[in-house]
Design a protein around this nucleic acid. Structure first.
Lengths: 230, 230
DNA sequence: CGGACACTGTTCGATACCGTACAGACGGTG
DNA sequence: CACCGTCTGTACGGTATCGAACAGTGTCCG
């Protein structure tokens, strides 16, 4: 029933203790689970196709995603450590189900269950690595590569081959222009890696996407120019 | 004697237990404490003016810093959670003293001391926030702003007003050209925020640097053009 | 079935940054 | 004090991306 990777890592006893404090919720795309500066909040353990992005918003309305959590993990764990939300916004990218618990309640619980605390800490570390990787990628890769990476990440998190994402939303995640995403998307489409229509992206070739996503700068010359294709 | 922020946060009993397992070491700038893929290693608690950068290296020799730790914290904590090094390189940016302990030993210790584990987890979270902030800044800010940010960060971590950093090293931290750093450095110098000569950067105006580092895109027009100054 | 809205396609000039290359200046060493 | 390695200054053309528009096209709703 409850297929959450993080919960599955817990000792059986702790799983029971945790779930007894949780309630099921439905998350809708676009919903904001936590805004910057919040002192407390809920911890969400995501199920099935749900995904939540950690977004940093700069002065204007535009944003930049620094991480994406899915059914393998959770968001809001900082509240279970007694820490504030920081500068993040938790933004639901993909609708779906989740279990949630109050941060303060979980803090008291994990304060008694060392195994649980250790599991949470480990997840935070792994997640922060992903943040660093995304940051590094954003620095050195062009938009098609970054788009491929984000699509790939969304697929891995949700296990869905069709993603409901508009170019505008992706632009916000990558911190680039909407028009830039359109070009990059057409690029990926021309290579037969994805197909899309009006807010739906169909993944056709996972390995191909991975190749593009991890391509180094120098490799780019090998690839065909957009305009010459079909 | 031992002025490390993270150790100071521990309960007194845990401080003793931890320090008994540590040995003092001297770290020299340029030294690499951990390479990507390492399965285990030491945890370093940094003292006084020491600073260590978390660097992600892309295919070539060039890199990109995603975080900087100083005497307020530690590096290598993932080893105390039984996790591998990930894709990071731990690179000493600023020479100085540190205490270190074996990761596996600390893992056993923190497995018994819940307060210690909680403190470590909290630090990891706060640090990963900083990583996200740096990533976001790199995305939307120009080179002078990012340079100001890094100098500021180095100052906060080491509490030194003169930093021993070459343009080439800074370029590697920011993931930009060496020439780009030279221009940005001249920019900051012309505004009277820093002075520098051959590998030494003198901080003249901390608040001014902060202003530049946090300036949004739109604010940039207010500032004077480099070439028109003096 | 026609209108409205949201999404995608495409254009324009502007610009910040890149890769590369070389010239000048500091500072320690023989 | 002349040398040489290291560091900084500057230049060049090339390009990915930007900001701001406006023009098509799909889908839903009345």
């Amino acid at each position: 029933m409850l297929h959450n990777g993080l919960v599955a890592q817990l000792p059986p006893t702790d799983q029971g203790l945790l779930l007894r404090r949780c309630e099921p919720v439905e998350l809708k795309a676009g919903e904001i689970l936590s805004a910057p500066g919040a002192a407390s909040g809920h911890v969400y353990f995501l199920l099935s196709g749900t995904s939540v992005a950690l977004v940093v918003r700069n002065g204007g309305g535009s944003g930049l995603a620094v991480g994406l959590a899915g059914r393998e993990g959770a968001v809001g764990l900082q509240f279970a450590l007694g820490l504030g939300a920081g500068h993040f916004t938790l933004l639901v990218q993909s609708s779906g189900a989740a279990f949630r618990a109050d941060g303060a309640v979980l803090q008291r619980l994990s304060g008694r269950r060392l195994g649980m605390l250790r599991t949470f800490a480990g997840y935070l570390w792994v997640f922060s690595q992903e943040v660093a990787e995304l940051a590094a990628a954003a620095q050195v890769q062009d938009i098609p590569a970054r788009l491929a990476r984000w699509i790939l990440l969304s697929q891995v998190r949700t296990h869905q081959t069709e993603l409901q994402l508009t170019h505008a939303h992706l632009a916000d995640m990558l911190g680039v222009r909407r028009a830039g995403v359109t070009l990059a998307a057409r690029n990926l489409k021309n290579r037969g890696l994805v197909d899309y229509r009006r807010g739906r992206i169909q993944i056709l070739n996972l390995e191909g996407l991975a190749t593009v996503a991890h391509a180094q700068q120098g490799t780019r010359g090998d690839l065909l120019d957009d305009n010459e294709l079909v």
